[in-house]
């Protein structure tokens, strides 16, 4: 796998020089901090906006620190995943479309190294961002709302990471298969929504669905995860990711004729 190292160096340089290595973590840290901060200041915000009649006593139940961290996870599920999909949608399709891939494809390239190098770098940045986001959220949650055991947080993040990797792998495979980044993002979003929908409608009996990983991960905070289901879901996720590695490498090679010459 000599090509893997060479290509990974290229991916690193790309992600540093297009600033993804800075702005993606920045977004996740912001998301992580905003949730506890907004909740903490909600009473003051409501008061300042003058929405309450004079003298009215409006009891807002103070959320528990666990609830705040779950809300952070919700933010990551919506805005966070959208950011990752947008950031990496053009990873392969963009290279073909601009023609920069041509000068790689004319060499005796290992396409599995090509796909994997992109995956490893994107995964490293995405996971680091998600972790940093959770840690900053955790810091503020403790500051404003009280203690949560760090081990609970780590367990949640650890399992949630598999979900992040699944989303990322789907985006990269879509980028390898489709003609441009926009379509890849659309396909990834569509799949994301469809999976959630299918799980919501029919998933009552599918305890090992990968789509349930985020909610399983969240149950670490409250303490009672359904371990067999969780590990089952993680197992299936890993298998899907491995299958997508194969598919992504194969379709990248197959689409090599579509690079702009």
């Amino acid at each position: 796998m000599k090509h893997f190292g060479i290509l990974m160096q290229k991916e690193w340089r790309e992600n540093i020089r297009n600033y993804k290595i800075y702005w993606i973590p920045a977004i996740f840290i912001l998301l992580g901090i905003t949730e506890p901060a907004v909740n903490y200041f909600l009473p003051q915000i409501l008061e300042a906006s003058g929405g309450l009649p004079e003298g009215a006593v409006f009891e807002i139940p103070t959320p528990t620190p666990e609830q705040i961290l779950m809300a952070v996870l919700q933010q990551f599920q919506t805005i966070g995943m959208a950011v990752l999909i947008l950031a990496y949608m053009a990873t392969i399709a963009g290279e073909r479309k601009s023609g920069t891939a041509t000068l790689l494809y004319v060499r005796p390239l290992s396409f599995s190294a090509y796909f994997l190098s992109k995956w490893v770098v994107a995964a490293a940045i995405s996971l680091a961002s998600v972790w940093l986001g959770f840690f900053s959220g955790y810091y503020y949650t403790r500051l404003f709302f009280g203690e949560v055991e760090i081990i609970k947080l780590l367990q949640m993040i650890g399992f949630y990471s598999f979900w992040v990797l699944l989303i990322l792998t789907i985006v990269l495979a879509a980028s390898a298969a489709l003609p441009n980044g926009g379509l890849a993002a659309a396909a990834a979003f569509a799949l994301y929504v469809l999976l959630q929908l299918a799980d919501g409608l029919l998933g009552a009996n599918w305890s090992v669905s990968p789509v349930k990983i985020p909610q399983y991960a969240a149950t670490w905070l409250t303490g009672n995860p359904d371990l067999p289901s969780l590990w089952g879901a993680v197992g299936i996720t890993v298998v899907i990711i491995l299958v997508l590695f194969g598919f992504g490498s194969w379709i990248s090679r197959k689409n090599k004729a579509k690079t702009k010459v």
């Binding site: 600033y19 800075y22 702005w23 920045a26 977004i27 840290i29 912001l30 901090i33 905003t34 901060a37 900053s136 503020y140 500051l143």
Partner: peptide, 19 residues
């Protein structure tokens, strides 16, 4: 405590503007 939010937002903005 809230300074980091402001700093990150500002940094993103300045970074994007300079670029």
């Amino acid at each position: 405590a809230l300074l980091p939010i402001l700093i990150i937002q500002l940094a993103l903005m300045i970074f994007a503007l300079v670029d």
